[in-house]
């Protein structure tokens, strides 16, 4: 069972204290967007084996959404960070590159 540290309150929360929210860093496409854009926003998910960015809510704790980078195969957690960002923090990207030299990047 996963253990993720909430970046807001510092609690090392176990999975049962959290609610999963799927892939992180999706860009919203609203009215006027092309069908392909809307389809990608709505349905296309990366589902990688390896480095992945996810949304989690500290549902049984401070109630805040945060983002986590982890390896979906080994479950290694590279880091967690607040949700108010459109891309992963640079130092985290750096850390992941060091741990996974073959990683192609988060885009």
């Amino acid at each position: 069972m996963l253990l993720l540290e909430c970046p807001y309150c510092g609690v090392k929360a176990e999975e049962t204290e959290l609610a999963p929210g799927g892939e992180a860093h999706l860009k919203r496409f609203g009215p006027g967007s092309a069908p392909e854009e809307f389809e990608a926003y709505m349905f296309a998910r990366k589902n990688p084996k390896g480095v992945h960015f996810e949304r989690w809510r500290h549902a049984y704790g401070c109630g805040k959404w945060f983002l986590a980078a982890r390896d979906t195969a080994t479950l290694e957690v590279f880091g967690t960070y607040p949700a108010q960002t459109s891309e992963p923090p640079a130092d985290l990207v750096e850390k992941i590159r060091a741990r996974r030299p073959d990683w192609k990047g988060y885009k």
Partner: peptide, 13 residues
Amino acid sequence: HGWMEDWLQCEWW
């Protein structure tokens, strides 16, 4: 309530 907080925290922060 979770839906509202999701949008407020993650999209329109």
